[in-house]
Design a protein around this nucleic acid. Sequence first.
DNA 1: TTTAACTTTGAAACCGGTTTCAAAGCGTTC
DNA 2: GAACGCTTTGAAACCGGTTTCAAAGTTAAA
Lengths: 336, 336
Amino acid sequence: MVISLAQISDVAKLAGVSPATVSRVINGSAKVSEEKAKRVLEAIKATGFKPNEIARSLYKKSSRIIGYIVPSILNIFLNEIGRAIEEEAFQHGYKMILCNSDENPKKEAAYIQMLTAMNADGIIITANNENLDEEIRNCPLPIVVLDKEASGRYTAVVQSDNYAGGRLATEYLLKCGCKHPVLMRPPQKYSSGRQRFLGYMDVCKEHGIEPLFIDSPFNSNDGLRCSQELLERFPYVDGILAVNDMMVLSLYKVLLMQRRRVPDDIMIVGYDGIELGGLMTPELTTILQPIEEIGRLSAKIIIDQVADKTPDRQEYILPVKLKVRQTTRPPAESNG
Amino acid sequence: MVISLAQISDVAKLAGVSPATVSRVINGSAKVSEEKAKRVLEAIKATGFKPNEIARSLYKKSSRIIGYIVPSILNIFLNEIGRAIEEEAFQHGYKMILCNSDENPKKEAAYIQMLTAMNADGIIITANNENLDEEIRNCPLPIVVLDKEASGRYTAVVQSDNYAGGRLATEYLLKCGCKHPVLMRPPQKYSSGRQRFLGYMDVCKEHGIEPLFIDSPFNSNDGLRCSQELLERFPYVDGILAVNDMMVLSLYKVLLMQRRRVPDDIMIVGYDGIELGGLMTPELTTILQPIEEIGRLSAKIIIDQVADKTPDRQEYILPVKLKVRQTTRPPAESNG
DNA sequence: TTTAACTTTGAAACCGGTTTCAAAGCGTTC
DNA sequence: GAACGCTTTGAAACCGGTTTCAAAGTTAAA
């Protein structure tokens, strides 16, 4: 059984007018006599006609769709941003399409092209790899980049203050009496990762503390191995700056196996502020990225761009906060 | 700066042929003289032309896109299925678009329409609400439904064996010596939820055990409250069948606060088998849904449907497995 | 050498909409 | 009553592709 949808020509025929008139009624783009308008509206109702937004976008160059491309749909942090994008988008009559690039340049290119082809109004992307730059250069759509510094042809870059985040976490650990804070260093191919590393290094330098770090991926596949290695290389560690909140689950496992207590023996500060952190036991002290704001702002930039309200190439650095929960001991009263 | 992409007419002009000939070269849909074909290929390279898949789909009625609509992109289980869909899709030259419906009928309708408009080749959906039925009835695309029984106009229903899953978890708890297993009953508006409940009830009946349950949502927003209520209403509980793996994090928190040990005082069996379960401490004993298979099969059904290989209205029930980890004590040797 | 059959090709129609453009209809004003 | 301006309307062109169709060119057969 093949169902076929009502088209504008069906409505036109039923109402005894031309397709042009139907279009005018739908879009309010020109005046139509009351009588014909009424007939058209009735015909629309009768046929259940819904305009084909994509066909329309062929001419209009706007489909009221925002594309969001992430390296993995299993990344909770990025998905929480996605939820915010979607909400903001929907409030303005836009839809959001989520695409999983798998860190695969081919997929990324394919999705960028798809979004271009469907006349999406913009793309929000976490652009890990640099190979992408050409694809982006050739893309006529507004592009908002998360998690990367401003280079190449982007409409805007939206990030939280990763340097401050790195500092904040490190400083707090020190304030809590930590002597050997170890950083799970985020991938340095991301500017966010570099900034956080810098923040950590600067604080160590300022406090005359030897920087200790181990390279860590964002996804938790290798989490256990990475956590184990950390403890082996730095057995005297008394504080860990996790690469992100998710990784802390692996840390907990390994720490428990080694009978190290959190926060008594080792303190932990996470990163991101995903909801999961509050559900962990013990609840995770972490750096809160302004997830909701990152998402909403990114969406808004694109929506505004459509209305030509915004200048080119903005860069937004949003503030982060420290959320103190249970994986850190209270700071000592004295010395900052 | 506005970038405009090369179009087929640009290629045609550069190669000194008609757009029709370019189209024939791209698609191999008809023979073109070697000489012209060569010129066309060169022109394509020179212009960087990439055919607009969406414009093409206007005529072809296929854009090689599969839509996946979920109630929440924060649901890890559904996202893991999504990853499998995407992989299968990409292997066959298809793309996957993930849409977040927020359990909002308006959004669901909007996304179904969007996918229809872009001539997607099919939709995979977790159709929680019944209001959707009309939207689906009016959608000419193949639709695969997860997590719902076969009713309405669906191309196929793909589910795991929720009844068996409910039974398996309950039976295992009993086998481990559990006397008062409590079910966090999944929402009964989902057929999956009803089936699991049924499985639990049947096993209780067979073993002469009083069924104990408390209604629980899938998302973990209310997890803490729900877990607390469970312990208040059934203080003597010695085994919990969690509504899903994610909810177990909340359970852990509440149990720890009440100083109940897992699995010594209370055993837990999760549901779904998301990767997170293996990262929990203690590691979660759970019912493994065949996540990878659910996703791949769903995608394959749609891809096959395009090639008109499959008959209408199939129903697939995939087997589940028990994954024993650390939240249950070893079963007693004797009695099954 | 003529005719038939086949190949290659571009013009035109199509997909489902929107918009331009010019014509028709109407009411004013002189 | 004619000339003018304004409103409403449908035909046609357009968006970026694909395919049909018929014409032109080529080859083979008679």
